[in-house]
Structures are given as structure tokens and as C-alpha cells.
Design a protein around this nucleic acid. Structure first.
Length: 456
RNA sequence: GUCCCCAUCGUCUAGAGGUUAGGACUCAGGCCUUUCAAGCCUGUAACACGGGUUCGAUUCCCGUUGGGGACGCCA
């Protein structure tokens, strides 16, 4: 699911929730080429992941083909639509000629009054637009909008293969499903007048339309569907929390004063079309990073474990059961992680058996100079009963004092590399507590061996 | 090309005639400190341009420029 679609879905959902309405999910799959079962499954999965639920559906537009055909037939019957036998090639030729002559092209109406019948051979069906008058509406975001009917021209509503076009299908479906509010991307703003003509031809009252500005890339261009970072699934895979992605999306184009952080519930309570802006917004990955961290920090321990479990398992190569020590570790890590992937890699040292030292970290901290410090600490801890953070700290400080009154860092860094393999981790005492006595002692011994045999 | 839309820090935005133009992200510096973060403090940084209207325009109007969208027998 594209970021733009996701945000549109979010706004629609929020609007419905805020106003006590019903959210209807309809999949517009009349283009068989682009609509696959896989794409539909992905869409539903992403919606669920974001926590956006619906009250009705999913409906598939493709299943309503008979109804669409029926409506076209009745439009033909009443003369509000007509058969057109102009071929694509003829149309293209006339269009180019018109443009070359400096004119503006809309369908020239050649078949408009020709009254072609069912026996016309291969033909399309066009909607007959009023010769004059405006097709106007009051947009929920853009305000008064509209275009003269004469500028639009009679457009095709049924292809020569009998399939119906999107514009006809949406209008019929929205009418049949009793849709009262349509919130969609601003790329549809210019399509709305034609759809209004369709409502008029059907003697129906159109719903309220609100067009939300597009999401563009860093260069200001419309997000291409081919860009992998334009999809919700991409961020999900990166380990971002759905809470973060939703928060990120809702702030593109919508604001609520100075508030930056919104839970799904708050969005449902506060969302408002009045504060949707009109300018396109570009998606800023840095902001997502920040929100990612914020939401990881905010999750309850239990939820955090549930979200982390698959990422932890991937890192460890096995299921990692929840335990008090793991919860403690996750708590230490949540402040410094932007994504679940990030956090899992930081937790790696505690869930694997074989530690691999980060090359640079080992070169810098596991040097000969660390030997006496590490050895003294190892001996001292071997005789220590209390494995609490406070006693560990006392031991560290005692070793530093007796080894020439060195700074704590001189000891802490080598130990950090020894037990986590990395030069960066949570506080060293907490880290040792989480790791437990046995593994700490083993890793200290290994590091000592490394210092004596590999270090330069 | 035609029609439509948009325009406040690099980015997301607040602002709806009178503000030291606010917040957030990013960036820089500082504090804290056993590392990495987090947190706290400070700083850099914006009303595209030109005309009006007005005692007074970021705010209203017009134009210019720039950007975007739509112009399909796609959705």
C-alpha cells in the first residue's frame, strides 16, 4: 500500500470515527491487470497493521459489473449517453490537429447526435455533458471548486470491450452504497466535475467531496509507486511501529495546533477537515525516525515484547521467550532504538551464544593494557555473591582504585566489548545484570584469552 | 500546450490585519556521563517576487515566478 493511499485511508477512517460514521472499504479493481489477489491481501494486511478498521466491506468493484452495465444501459435508454464509433486512431489524429491549430481538445462530438444503435459495431459509450453551465461543488479542503461543463467534453464511460470505466463505477457504487463523504487524493480534484456530471445524469445528489493534498518525494515530485520507500510495507519491514507510521502520516497535511504526537485514539477523536492544508507535503524519513523512537519508548512492556518477538527470533535464530531479564533489557534498549530491527540488533548479545567482537571496538579496547584490569575484575567478581547493579559498580570502582586509580571508562569499555562485542551499549552494570553472572564470567574469561593471544 | 491547484525555516507545520513570526524534525554547541543513547539548555534557519487595499500586511485582492495535478477505451 502506497503512503498516499495509506494516508487517505487514515483520514477517511479518522473522519468516520470522529463523526460516528461508517467506514466502507471498497477495492477498486476494475483494472484486472493491476489488481491481483496478492495486492489485495497486502492492502488488507497493511490496513490491519495500522489499526484502521472498517464497518462495511471489503467490496470489490469488479463484482458489481452487472450493476454497472445496467446503469450504462439506462443512460443510453434516456439519451444521456450515446454510442461512439470513433476509433482511438481517429481520435488521436483529430486531437493532434486541434492542438496544432492552437485549439483546446475535448471530444468534438462527432457521434453525439449520430444516434448509433446497438448494431453500430465496435463502439464506446460516452456521457452527454450539458452544453454549458458549471459543474461545481464545495470541497471539504479546497473550498468552492468547479469547472465549466463545456471544457470537459463528453467522456467515455464504457469501453469498446464492454468494460465500464472507473468514473462510472465509482459514482454508481458510491450511490448504491449510500456514501455521504468521499475523502481522496488531490489528483482526483480535476476529475470531480466529470463525476458531478454523472451524478446529474443519474438524477442523484453527489456526496461531499474532500481532496487531500498529495504526498511528494524530497524533490517535490509525486511519489512513484515503484519507489520501495513509498510503501507502508517497506517501513513495516524496517521495524517501525505502526503507531509511529500512523503518527507520521497523520501529520502530513493535517495539524492540531502545536501537537506532534498522536495516538490512533487521539486521531479518531481530534481529526478535522478544517485543519487539512492545501499544499503538497513531502515525506521526511528523519521525522519518522524520531517518531519511531518515541513510540518504542512509549509502549507497555508486554506490547513491546510481542512486537519484538519476531525480530528477536530472527536475530537469535530461535524463539526468545519472555523473561524478567529480557523485559529489563528491552527497557534499557528502548531509549536508544528507532526501530524494532535496530533494537533487535542491540539485543543480539543477550540472545546469542557465540559473540563476535566488532573489529574496531576490539582493536580499540581489547588491548594488552586491559589485561590487568580485566583480570582483576574477573577475580573479584568470581568471589562476589550479590549480582546487583550497585554491588557491581562498587566492585568496578574498587578495581579501578587498586589498579592505579584509573578512570572508570578504562575498565568499563573493555568489559563492554567483552560482554556485548560492541563499544556501545546500555550502562555497563545494568548490562551485566541482564546478562547474568554465568555468561558474564565466561565472556570475561574469553576476552582475557583474546587479549593475551590475539591483541597487539 | 490547455484547464485547475498550491506557495511561512532544509522538511512537516502554527498563524485566520497589529506576534520579538510559534512548535516539531534535522543540523551546531553545551550540560549530564563508563560508551551509545535519552533528557535538559542554547543556537543557526522562513513569510518567493512585484503591485495594490489599509493607519498598518505573512494574513485580503491582482499579477509574476516557481512547483504540482488533470487533460486515457488507467485507477
Amino acid at each position: 500500500m502506497h503512503l498516499g493511499n495509506a494516508r487517505t485511508a487514515l483520514f477517511s477512517w479518522a473522519y468516520a470515527r470522529r463523526h460516528g460514521g461508517q467506514m466502507v472499504l471498497r477495492i477498486e479493481d476494475t483494472d484486472a491487470e493491476r489488481s491481483t489477489q496478492a495486492s489485495e491481501d497486502a492492502l488488507l494486511a497493511e490496513l490491519a497493521w495500522l489499526g484502521l478498521d472498517w464497518d462495511d466491506g471489503p467490496h470489490r468493484q469488479s463484482e458489481r459489473a452487472p450493476r454497472h452495465a445496467e446503469v450504462v444501459a439506462s443512460l443510453l435508454e434516456t439519451g444521456r449517453a450515446y454510442r461512439c464509433i470513433c476509433t482511438k486512431e481517429e481520435l488521436e489524429t483529430r486531437k493532434q490537429a486541434t492542438i496544432a491549430a492552437g485549439g483546446k481538445w475535448t471530444y468534438d462530438g462527432l457521434c453525439r447526435d449520430a444516434d448509433h444503435g446497438e448494431d453500430a459495431g465496435e463502439h464506446t459509450v460516452r456521457l452527454r455533458l450539458p452544453a454549458e453551465g458549471a459543474l461545481a461543488w464545495d470541497d471539504g479542503v479546497f473550498g468552492p471548486s468547479g469547472q465549466d461543463a463545456a471544457e470537459i467534453g463528453d467522456r467515455i464511460i464504457r469501453r469498446s470491450d464492454g468494460g465500464v470505466l472507473y468514473h462510472l463505477a465509482v459514482v454508481v457504487d458510491d450511490l448504491d452504497m449510500g456514501i455521504t463523504h468521499v475523502i481522496r487524493g488531490a489528483d482526483h480534484h480535476a476529475n470531480t466535475p466529470f463525476q458531478l456530471a454523472l451524478y446529474a445524469a443519474l438524477d442523484a445528489v453527489p456526496p461531499q467531496f474532500a481532496h487531500v493534498p498529495l504526498i511528494v518525494d524530497a524533490k517535490g515530485k509525486k511519489l512513484s509507486k515503484r519507489r520501495e520507500d513509498a510503501s507502508v510495507g517497506h517501513y513495516r519491514g524496517e521495524g517501525f511501529l505502526p503507531e509511529a507510521v500512523l503518527n507520521w502520516l497523520v501529520r502530513m497535511g493535517w495539524s492540531h495546533g502545536d501537537q506532534e504526537v498522536f495516538s490512533r485514539e487521539e486521531v479518531a477523536r481530534l481529526f478535522d477537515l478544517d485543519h487539512v492544508g492545501r499544499a503538497a507535503a513531502s515525506a521526511d524519513p528523519d521525522k519518522l525516525m524520531h517518531l519511531g523512537q518515541h513510540w518504542i519508548k512509549s509502549l507497555p512492556a508486554e506490547t513491546l515484547y510481542e512486537r519484538m518477538a519476531p525480530f528477536l527470533a530472527a536475530e537469535a535464530g530461535r524463539e526468545v521467550p519472555r523473561s524478567p531479564a529480557l523485559d529489563q533489557l528491552l527497557d534499557l534498549l528502548r531509549e536508544r532504538s528507532h526501530t524494532l530491527v535496530d533494537m533487535a540488533s542491540r539485543a543480539r548479545f543477550a540472545v546469542v551464544d557465540e559473540l563476535v567482537y566488532d573489529e574496531k571496538a576490539a582493536a580499540k579496547h581489547l588491548k594488552k593494557a586491559a589485561d590487568p584490569l580485566l583480570a582483576a575484575l574477573h577475580d573479584r567478581l568470581a568471589g562476589q555473591d550479590d549480582w546487583g547493579a550497585d554491588s557491581l559498580e562498587a566492585s568496578f570502582r574498587a578495581v579501578c582504585a587498586e589498579q592505579g586509580d584509573v578512570g572508570l571508562g578504562k575498565l568499563a569499555q573493555p568489559v563492554r566489548v567483552a560482554v556485548t562485542g560492541s563499544a556501545a551499549s546500555p550502562g555497563i552494570f545494568e548490562t551485566l545484570v541482564v546478562l547474568g553472572r554465568e555468561r558474564t564470567m565466561a565472556r570475561l574469561a574469553e576476552a582475557l584469552h583474546y587479549v593475551r593471544h590475539h591483541a597487539g
